[in-house]
Design a protein around this nucleic acid. Structure first.
Length: 260
DNA sequence: ATGGCTGCAGGATGCAGA
C-alpha cells in the first residue's frame, strides 16, 4: 500500500497538475492539505474518475484538508479532538479495512505559528499538544495508523539547506521541535527518517528569491507511523519532480510504501 | 530576509503562508 501526502496550496489553482500526478503515481491513499476551498466546491469528480473515494474538510480561502482513497472508507471523522471551538479545517481521518485488520490514516495541516510570540504561535503549540493527546489515545488502543501531513516543523538542522535562516521562525523554534520530538517519543516513527539519515532532502521550497533554483528547501511534510504501521514500512520517498512543473505548489508529495 | 512569490476574495489591495 502506498500513502502520499501533499500540501497542494489551493486545489483550484493546482487541479491539472494534481490529477496528472495522481493518475501517474496512483497512491492507494492520498492526503491533501491547504485545499483552500469549501466542501461543496471541491473538484471531487476529477478524482472519482480516477477511481478514488473522496472525503474533505474544506474551508473558504484558507486551510482545508482532504483524503482520497482507492479503498472504501469504513469511517471518516473531521477535526482534531480536544477543542470544539477550533473552527480551522486542519484534520481529517479515515479508517480502512486491510487484510487482518484496519488502518487509520489522517491528513493533517499543523498550524504555521508565525510570527513567533503571537496568538498564532500559541495556537500552534495548543494544536500540537492536542495532536499528542490524540496520538497517545490511539496508541493506547494499539492501532495501526499513519498521521500524514504538513507538520510545519523542521525537525533537525539537516532538514534545512540553511538552518541558520530559520532560527527565528516558528517552524524551527526549540519549543516546536521539542513538541515534535515528544510525538516521536510516544513511539511514533518518522517514515522518511527511518529510511534515510542523509541531509539534502526537502519537501518545501519558497516561491521567493529563487529558493527552488538554489535548493534552499526545508523538510516539513512528514508521515508518522504507529508501531504496527512502522513494522510494515518498506520505504519512503519525496517526489520533488513536481516542484519544477508549471504553476507548482511550494510543497511536493511525500510517499511511503507499507507492506499491507 | 529588510519577505524579492503565490492563491484567494472580490473587484483594490490585504491577508496568509513559511
Amino acid at each position: 500500500m502506498r500513502i502520499a501526502t501533499w500540501n497542494i496550496n489551493g486545489i483550484r489553482a493546482r487541479l491539472e497538475g494534481a490529477v496528472q500526478w495522481t493518475s501517474e503515481v496512483r497512491p492507494d491513499i492520498l492526503c491533501f492539505q491547504e485545499i483552500k476551498i469549501e466542501d461543496a466546491a471541491f473538484p471531487r469528480s476529477a478524482f472519482e474518475d480516477l477511481g478514488y473515494n473522496v472525503e474533505t474538510l474544506g474551508q473558504k480561502s484558507f486551510n482545508g484538508v482532504a483524503l482520497l482513497s482507492k479503498l472504501p472508507f469504513d469511517e471518516v471523522s473531521r477535526g482534531l479532538p480536544g477543542d470544539d471551538a477550533d473552527s480551522q479545517a486542519r484534520f481529517i481521518e479515515g479508517v480502512f479495512s486491510i487484510s487482518g485488520g484496519a488502518i487509520r490514516v489522517a491528513s493533517l495541516y499543523l498550524p504555521n505559528g508565525n510570527p513567533v510570540g503571537t496568538d498564532k504561535f500559541t495556537y500552534k503549540f495548543a494544536w500540537m499538544d492536542r495532536l499528542e493527546a490524540y496520538a497517545k489515545a490511539r496508541l493506547a488502543a494499539e492501532e495501526m495508523f499513519v498521521f500524514a501531513g504538513d507538520y510545519n516543523v523542521i525537525p533537525e538542522p539537516i532538514d534545512a539547506r540553511y538552518p541558520e535562516h530559520w532560527v527565528e521562525d516558528a517552524l524551527f523554534q526549540p519549543e516546536t521541535r521539542m513538541r515534535y520530538r515528544r510525538l516521536l517519543n510516544l513511539g511514533l516513527t518518522c517514515a522518511f527518517r527511518a529510511c534515510s539519515s542523509e541531509p539534502g532532502y526537502y519537501s518545501f521550497w519558497d516561491y521567493q528569491a529563487g529558493a527552488w533554483q538554489r535548493n534552499n528547501g526545508i523538510r516539513i511534510d512528514h508521515q508518522l507511523l504507529s508501531p504496527l504501521a512502522a513494522d510494515r514500512l518498506r520505504g519512503a520517498q519525496i517526489d520533488k519532480r513536481t516542484r519544477s512543473w508549471d504553476k507548482p505548489s511550494d510543497h511536493v508529495p511525500v510517499m511511503i510504501e507499507l507492506d499491507v
